[in-house]
């Protein structure tokens, strides 16, 4: 297996985004991203602040993965989706607690924390945000 895949620091340094949806907001144009960027992709400003992004949003587009990469085969079929958070931030996430045929564009979803990539029986369990259909 590829060493990059099991890198502990590579996951650890992303924890603010993966655990808490900490992203960036441009102080000049208001554009928000996950993860935060050093340069605003919209206006080019370097004046970026860290913010907690909203934990709810809706599915904009999605795909059902049957042919998974190594390390994700146990989860197939699973759904990955483009999600627009309540403040308009677009992120890419796996969906959970949902059957592929239940997913719809426009579906309201909320963030949960789940196991995402597990490095075998002895390695790191990498947890991160996933989204599920809202409970209420």
């Amino acid at each position: 297996m590829w060493a990059y895949w099991q890198s502990v620091p590579a996951h650890w340094r992303e924890l603010p985004a993966r655990y808490r949806l900490e992203g960036g907001k441009c102080r000049d144009c208001g554009h928000t991203t996950l993860p935060d960027e050093m340069v605003c992709p919209v206006c080019g400003s370097k004046n970026i602040e860290r913010i907690n992004l909203p934990r709810r949003g809706k599915v904009v587009n999605y795909s059902v993965i049957w042919n998974a990469p190594r390390g994700y085969e146990y989860y197939t079929p699973y759904v990955v989706a483009l999600i627009e958070l309540e403040d308009g931030t677009r992120i890419f996430s796996q969906l959970t607690d949902v059957h592929p045929d239940e997913v719809r564009e426009g579906m309201e979803v909320e963030m949960v924390l789940r196991k995402t990539r597990v490095s075998g029986e002895s390695g790191l369990i990498a947890y991160s945000y996933k989204f599920r259909p809202v409970m209420d």
Binding site: R70, G71, E73, Y74, R117, V118, G120, I125, M135
Partner: peptide, 27 residues
């Protein structure tokens, strides 16, 4: 009350009682 039933096979898979070949995502 938020619930959905699974059969024994799915249960065994979810509980990782079934081992896959090259199961790198185990546990």
């Amino acid at each position: 009350s938020r619930k959905e039933y699974v059969d024994y096979t799915t249960y065994a898979r979810y509980r990782r009682m079934i081992r896959m070949l090259h199961d790198f995502s185990a546990y």
